[in-house]
Design a protein around this nucleic acid. Sequence first.
DNA 1: ATGGGGGCCTGCCGGC
DNA 2: TGCCGGCAGGCCCCCA
Length: 283
Amino acid sequence: MPELPEVETVRRGLLPAMEGAVIARAQVNRPDLRWPFPENMAARLTGQRVIALRRRSKYILADLSSGETLLIHLGMSGRMTVSGDPLGVFHHDHPAAQKHDHVVFDMANGARITFNDPRRFGAMDLMETARADAHPLLAKLGPEPLGNRFDETCLADALAGRKTPIKSALLDQRIVAGLGNIYVCEALFRARISPRRRAGNLSRARAAGLAGVIREVLRDAIEAGGSSLRDFRQADGELGYFQHRFDVYDREGQPCRTAGCTGTIRRIVQSGRSSFYCTSCQR
DNA sequence: ATGGGGGCCTGCCGGC
DNA sequence: TGCCGGCAGGCCCCCA
């Protein structure tokens, strides 16, 4: 599910309830998600203050007062929602527990944060904050697309010589971190590049343009509060709006939105994933 | 080294 | 109404 814009939207939604707040109680309802939880996870979280709530790629990172960092990944179907009232003014009740509520944080400020993940492709882990970058899930990630290190040159360099289709290359988190199936399709549409084109076959000028377009798509999506497909909700339970702005994703058979283009959006399968694109204006 | 495919899970949707 | 196949936003791992 959640790609970078959705994860960023969740992080922002969690900030008022989590950052600077103390985890009064951590309830862990099963031993694992995609992988086993770290040893004594509940005990290592209980009583800790969340110093900072960060994001790296599609991972949420909560730096704790203990010197450890909690890593959270939402997988395909993970959600984090806030209930209750961080200000302690209205004394809202918490909603009843749902199926697949795997981890629940009761914050000392009265907020409850619930991690729900039907498919359990998500993950949680704990590591030393000082060594967070070396975590196996983070160590090989490429640059943040909205950060300073991601520029035209670096994308062109990363794509050079690669025979894989540009679609697959952009899904490779070592080239650029945080893109998933939706935003790769959308970025390639905006850049007018066919998902089937060999990555190493793009001119440096087009690769440079693509880098700019990737940033633009992600910024637009974050601004819209992410996309709401199936089970994505913002942390406050509200729906995002970016799905209404998809130009190609899930628009098979519909007309291309490029001005003057009479093409139709097609769906193809590349390395097992759907790609949506206009065969007429994406080359 | 690089690229492709399988597998992990549950839920939903469309077709019969 | 019910069953079944196909599909889904991610990513590790194995194989060629």
